[in-house]
Design a protein around this nucleic acid. Sequence first.
DNA 1: AAAAATCTGTAGCGCTCGCTACAGAACGAG
DNA 2: CTCGTTCTGTAGCGAGCGCTACAGATTTTT
Lengths: 200, 200
Amino acid sequence: MTTGQRGRPRSFDRARALDQATLTFWEHGYEATSVAGLTRAMGIGAPSLYAAFGDKKALFDEVVGAYGQTYGVFIRRAFAEESGARATIGRILREAATEFTLTGRPRGCLVLSAAVNCTSREVEEALREVRDGNLAEFERLIAADVATGALPAGTDPRALARFSVAVFQGMSQQARDGASEEELAAVAELAMRGWPEQRD
Amino acid sequence: MTTGQRGRPRSFDRARALDQATLTFWEHGYEATSVAGLTRAMGIGAPSLYAAFGDKKALFDEVVGAYGQTYGVFIRRAFAEESGARATIGRILREAATEFTLTGRPRGCLVLSAAVNCTSREVEEALREVRDGNLAEFERLIAADVATGALPAGTDPRALARFSVAVFQGMSQQARDGASEEELAAVAELAMRGWPEQRD
DNA sequence: AAAAATCTGTAGCGCTCGCTACAGAACGAG
DNA sequence: CTCGTTCTGTAGCGAGCGCTACAGATTTTT
């Protein structure tokens, strides 16, 4: 018979180790994070890391996926719970002020900062695709409101989406440079003044 | 007698080599730029590089200085030629749309992107200090206009400066991610809608 | 001419990188 | 128990990193 796995069982919590890897990549970025640093943070040896996660890039990919479903979930929540582009994106920017400055975790957004200045073009473009996806999602949301008349007819969805994403990224960088939650909240409010009035 | 320098003369143009180093650091960032990549781009051997510029960090410091006086000079020009915070910072954002997307050079701003995810804390904090300086300069400019009544009394100089810098940084990132000059110009215009009316 | 000074190219230093071979340890199956 | 399987820790691989010793080349000085 065969139910459980055979052989010596894993001696560490895989999800916990993945979270430690997430925090490490988040703080230092892909390139500046060494496998030695990862094994130290995860509390395991290198062979265990490679057996459980593949190689460094595969671990990073898994980290990015897990990040989106944990630390980055506030974005999906805004999309799910709010209606209208202004309410959704406004909430994302306002909550980002809080999320980007929480204690006990690195500041800013992993997706925005972890793969800049990267030797591996694959890693750099992987996160760029995530960002492009978010941009396109913003644009679709805005375009839908323009189509229904909830946003003024003259509104350029692409431009407004670019603006919103730019502010989001700027807030992430500012958080990393030491901006407080209150300062970032003020940035979000000022950004929403650039938005046209919503009629719904 | 002694006028010119003795010994074998340098066989390359130092300023030209420095500019090539600037472009290389600009494109790949400090960490991802290897000395081998630098010597290739500069067209010189490693010993010539070390003799002329010190070490990698010293070369980078010189690059940052030269960058501020060449590629980044549009910012100082705006400060010098415009009067009033709104005109100055508005011009900087509008011109950034052009500067960040010029062909024949890397996109975005070296000061903002070249030292993120850096192993050397010194390098990372060196550029952070430049950014902090720019932020403080923005804040002083705004505060002065609030004091004279050119900007409304309720205006928070710190917040408005943070907002402007955040947009500037976001524009740089968007440029690196492929945004067009027109899109960035639209971002700048939307950002200025967040600004209060200037009365002078 | 010879000597002193400075730059250039080769070749390689010590170090860290991502990654893995290997032997021993800890488990289930028979 | 013994065997097969899987994980763990040590120890080290080849490659690239920043950097430099050294000899030869090219200049001014004497």
